[in-house]
Simulated scan of single mutants.
Amino acid sequence: MNTVTYGVYTTARQNCSYVLEYDDALQNLQAIIFLVRCPILSRSIVCVMRVQIPTLSCVAFVCCPHAPDLDRLRDSCKASHVLLRASPLGLLALIYEQRGLDYEGWVTRVALESHEIEVFMRMSPPGWTYHRLSPSRYKELSDTDRLLSRLQSTDIEICHGHSIMTFAVRFGKFCTEALDVIEGKPGVPKLAPGARAMVEDRIRFSISRCLSVRERFEELTHRHRGQINASFSLIAQKDSKVNQAMAGIGVDVARVTALDSRTMKTIGVLTLIFLPSSLVTSLWQANIFHLSEDTNGKVYAGTTVAVTAAVFFCWWLYMRLFEKPLEQYSYPLPQTPAPDPVPSSALFTHVRFGEAQSPS
């Protein structure tokens, strides 16, 4: 196994090429080795085919990590044995045809996922056939974190699909050119017109299918960009509603706090009213002052009123002298400069409903 053949098994990228094998004297062409690697996600079909010159007898080695893909390819070879006998490149045509079917199923699945997101966001235009979402699927898309993760993974898959389909179109052109490469070598008999047409027709049809799949991936790219923008807008709206709800809760808390403060202030005022009278009553009950019965009531009432007034005066004096007014913590707003006056000779244009009118 030469270096180029070994590279097609070790590389992780798509590949389609051929190698010319000469004799020891490097004069006569002995064989053409075709190296093909057709990927789709993590399922790549690798084919190394050696075509003997000039007998066109060939031997091919095909491998794939996905066993069902090999089984389908084996069934296709059994059903198309006439194509394999017509040309040694019939095997490449069958591989290309099978990959085209896989690409078509791939883009259909991605388009269905994208359509589900559009239905969830109500982005589908009227007249389109809607795909009804299951309750579990609707609940999954309602989760913001899962929705963003799903959008990101789908975007990566669409970008990867566009790259793969670009290679698929190039691989179809490579298969067509391979027919000319084999027939153009000296000593190689030309294929019968019917045999060449049999191979070219299947390759041409697969190229057309891959082109339509690539166009669909391009369409999904633009649609998916709109979905991502719409999802961020919906998330921003949801956050705005949450902030509005939190602001409403803050207003309610402030209202309750204000009512609580008013209640505490009322309790404080009542305390200032009745605490001096309670103090005077305690002193009077201690029999510290010995007054006559005629003057006792008058002195008690006057003392109570005087002490209560003194307490309220001290409270007012504390509010005036020891508490800083709120104006000390206010800062002046920056003054914006006035715009430059517009000269009277300037011409203004008033635009209204698409018409421009100049004032007379």
Rank of each mutant, 00 (worst) to 15 (best):
P186T: 07
R209A: 11
I207C: 11
L179M: 08
H162D: 08
K190T: 00
G172Q: 02
A192K: 02
G161T: 07
A195H: 05
I164L: 14
T166G: 03
P193C: 01
R209W: 06
E183V: 03
K190W: 03
S163W: 04
P186F: 14
F174C: 14
G184L: 07
H160S: 09
F174S: 14
G187P: 09
V213H: 08
R204V: 12
S212M: 09
T176R: 11
K173T: 14
A168I: 05
D180Q: 15
S206R: 05
P186D: 12
G184E: 08
P186M: 10
P193L: 04
D201P: 00
R204P: 00
G194M: 00
R196Y: 12
E177A: 13
A195Q: 12
F174N: 11
E200R: 05
R170M: 12
H160K: 14
V213M: 00
T176I: 14
T166I: 02
F171M: 10
V169K: 04
E200S: 09
R209M: 05
E177D: 15
F174A: 14
K185T: 09
M165Q: 13
L211V: 02
F167C: 12
K190Q: 04
F205L: 10
A168V: 05
A195Y: 05
P193Q: 06
I164V: 10
F217Q: 02
L191N: 06
K185E: 13
F205A: 13
F171A: 15
V181M: 13
F171D: 06
F205M: 09
E183N: 04
R196W: 07
K173H: 15
R214H: 11
G194R: 00
I182N: 14
V213G: 03
F205P: 00
P186Y: 11
R216C: 07
S208A: 06
A192H: 12
P193Y: 00
F167V: 09
H162G: 05
F205D: 13
C210M: 11
